[in-house]
């Protein structure tokens, strides 16, 4: 997905993990995904640059869909779709 598509996504669940260090953002994503409806988009805000690759690989393993990421002011917006 390109930046405009990512920016235009309707987000079903947002989790703000900014200011937490490893394994914080991944753990917050795991906790929050239960509250995201299947098929819905979850957005993770993280100030840890490793989160993008962490969430991308985790999605592949858990059979969720990694949609992409956007860089914001001092943090990243990471988008995924809960698939099951």
């Amino acid at each position: 997905m390109d930046a405009s598509e990512l920016g235009g996504l309707s987000v079903a669940k947002q989790v703000d993990a900014r200011g937490t260090a490893c394994p914080g953002p991944l753990l917050e994503a795991k906790r929050a995904v239960a509250a995201c409806p299947v098929g819905g988009v979850m957005e993770i805000l993280s100030s840890d640059e490793g989160t993008m690759e962490d969430v991308s690989r985790w999605c592949a393993k858990m059979q969720h869909e990694y949609l992409g990421d956007l860089e914001a002011d001092g943090y990243w917006r990471v988008f995924m779709r809960r698939k099951k």
Binding site: C22, P23, L26, L27, A29, K30, W58, K61, M62
Partner: peptide, 11 residues
């Protein structure tokens, strides 16, 4: 503990 939590996140 960080590795343990990471692996637990992977179920």
């Amino acid at each position: 503990l960080i590795v343990a939590i990471g692996a637990a996140v992977y179920d």
